[in-house]
Design a binder for these strands. Sequence first.
DNA 1: AGCAGTACCTTGCATTACAAGATATATCTT
DNA 2: AAGATATATCTTGTAATGCAAGGTACTGCT
Lengths: 114, 114
Amino acid sequence: MADTTQMLKGILDGCLLSIIKEGEIYGYELAAKLESYGFHSFSEGTIYPLLLRMQKEGLVSTTLRKSTAGPKRKYYSLTEKGEQELEQFIIRWTQLSSSVNNVLNKGCFRNDCC
Amino acid sequence: MADTTQMLKGILDGCLLSIIKEGEIYGYELAAKLESYGFHSFSEGTIYPLLLRMQKEGLVSTTLRKSTAGPKRKYYSLTEKGEQELEQFIIRWTQLSSSVNNVLNKGCFRNDCC
DNA sequence: AGCAGTACCTTGCATTACAAGATATATCTT
DNA sequence: AAGATATATCTTGTAATGCAAGGTACTGCT
């Protein structure tokens, strides 16, 4: 306990999908973008395996392009399957976060009371 | 992917602490309470190991009491350390959920814009 | 005795965030 | 040229944890 790492499990997937949906982006840039959204930066050892898995699952497609400084960049964009997955993630996230907020606020069994 | 189980990791801890803070409660009852808060029910194989760990870490204290029907119940209540842990969990949860919402809503870098 | 319901615990598996390190390329400095 | 620096990707091994499946134990009912 006492750190955020466990809380992230399974959540990062959806966040990556959501960022990629905004437009083609490559891994190194993704790390920076996540930080700008309020996540304390992720090591690349976290992001790249995730991207590879999502590629295997057909959620993202990739294109290699030359870089002005450094090796080739691997640009990711969302497939149709990826968009569907993102929608389902948003549903799950909404349910989860409202459940947690219910507990933390000692809320009621339904949202419409109190 | 495609299920909520990974998203829960590390979040359940805080939820248990929060429920226990409301008053003494035993494991079997906790499972039911979680469901009433909107979580689809947890198997006991999830909850008991977690409670044992939190007991070892000194976050909760336990009292055995006879039951009217069945074996003895193990009632949990929060220690001071547990309350501190809960507070820190709430901070972490708030940060995380706002970060995720930023990403999903394609929000800005700060909360005060848009 | 046998059965159902209550209540707790253990074992083994799959997933995943991450540190640490390996690899490759382009630019700048010495 | 040679080396350093920054960019960019990937691999390996570790620890944490949700959960299915199974086991134990106690009470009351038929």
